[in-house]
């Protein structure tokens, strides 16, 4: 398609953010620093750090309720160097629009200096994939406002003590879906396919991507792309959670890699309406990298410790389906016989 036809009029100034060429070129400055109160090995804290490291000093961050609110900013202290403001659980989309709209009006009217200001609004999977979905959808339609909505997905309402969300994987133990004597599995919903849903549902949106902080440079460069491309953008990050997933915090980085290598977390981006798989996901699709069995990923986590072999096989079948039957493998879950698959009784 002709991308130029899709380009809206972008009158707010855009930042120039060059791609980071390798780990050794990563900026030294920290804009989200030490002294937050997250768990040992918290991958989402790393996501916050890399997010603003990539964005730089002329950035404003809005944070909706969740771990990255409560654990990072406990009143009278903060870990943020750049300006930060709390927003409500379902408001990451609205907060981004309101902040960007405020700057746009003030700049146009000459009430403040006209300059690029990165507006990043983050939400967890509870705030983003559940409660805030409508507001995010609304935000991705307002092309006049430059901002990035980042969903850090630790696959549960982790801050309130690990309750099931629309983004919790099938069968996982949560405090709202415990493994019990009568019911081995209480959480039977399949994880929402957020990034593809938003990319497919918002044709004007110029950047939607998935990331994993285990690949720090890829991660930061996607943030830079989203912030400099113009208009509203969305990035979905899978964040291993040592508390809710129940694993040794030392393994956060490894579990991120395993999610990608097992094909459970496809890395892709839709940039100006062009879909591109990248990183290890691309390597798997091009046959340069073997897709690992999901067992290698699931069995490292206490939240799946109750799984039987049937459960693991079912999980594997659903993932295989992603790569063999989906209209766009790993991205768009349309095919004729998806529904024939049923969980084990």
């Amino acid at each position: 398609m002709d991308a130029k036809l899709q380009v809206p009029t972008l009158d707010s100034p855009l930042p120039v953010l060059e791609p980071i060429k390798g780990v050794k070129k990563a900026p030294l400055e920290e804009y989200f620093t030490s002294g937050h109160r997250t768990c040992q090995g918290c991958e989402s804290a790393l996501v916050m750090k890399l997010m603003v490291k990539a964005a730089g000093p002329r950035t404003v961050v809005l944070g909706s309720t969740g771990c990255m609110y409560v654990a990072n900013t406990t009143y009278y202290s903060t870990s943020w160097v750049v300006p930060w403001m709390h927003t409500q659980l379902g408001s990451s989309g609205s907060a981004a629009v309101g902040t960007a709209a405020g700057y746009r009006a003030l700049m146009r009217k000459g009430k403040i200096k006209r300059e690029p200001i990165n507006v990043i609004s983050f939400c967890g999977d509870g705030g983003g994939a559940d409660m805030g979905l409508s507001a995010i959808s609304g935000a991705l339609q307002h092309m006049d406002y430059n901002h990035l909505i980042l969903l850090y997905d630790n696959e549960s309402y982790a801050n309130t003590d690990i309750q099931a969300s629309g983004s919790t994987p099938y069968g996982a133990n949560t405090t709202f879906s415990p493994h019990g004597k009568a019911k081995r599995i209480l959480h039977k919903r399949w994880k929402k396919n957020m990034a593809a849903m938003l990319a497919a549902g918002h044709p004007e949106c110029r950047y939607v991507g998935t990331v994993c902080a285990s690949y720090a440079v890829d991660f930061m460069n996607r943030i830079r792309k989203a912030l400099s491309i113009g208009g509203p953008t969305f990035i979905h990050s899978l964040d291993p959670c040592p508390k809710g997933w129940d694993y040794d915090p030392m393994l956060s980085h490894e579990l991120g890699e395993l999610a990608v290598l097992a094909g459970i977390w496809p890395l892709f981006e839709v940039e100006q309406h062009q879909l591109r798989l990248y990183g290890k996901t691309r390597a798997i699709v091009e046959g340069r990298q073997k897709r690992l069995p999901v067992r290698d990923y699931l069995m490292k986590q206490g939240r799946f410790a109750h799984f039987t072999n049937d459960d693991i096989d079912y999980f594997q079948a659903k993932i295989d389906e992603m790569w063999t039957r989906w209209l766009i493998p790993g991205v768009l879950p349309f095919s004729t016989d998806v529904l024939n698959e049923r969980p084990p009784a």
Partner: peptide
Amino acid sequence: EIAKHAEAVGA
């Protein structure tokens, strides 16, 4: 929420 956040940046 949009109006609230606009107020926060001085609009």
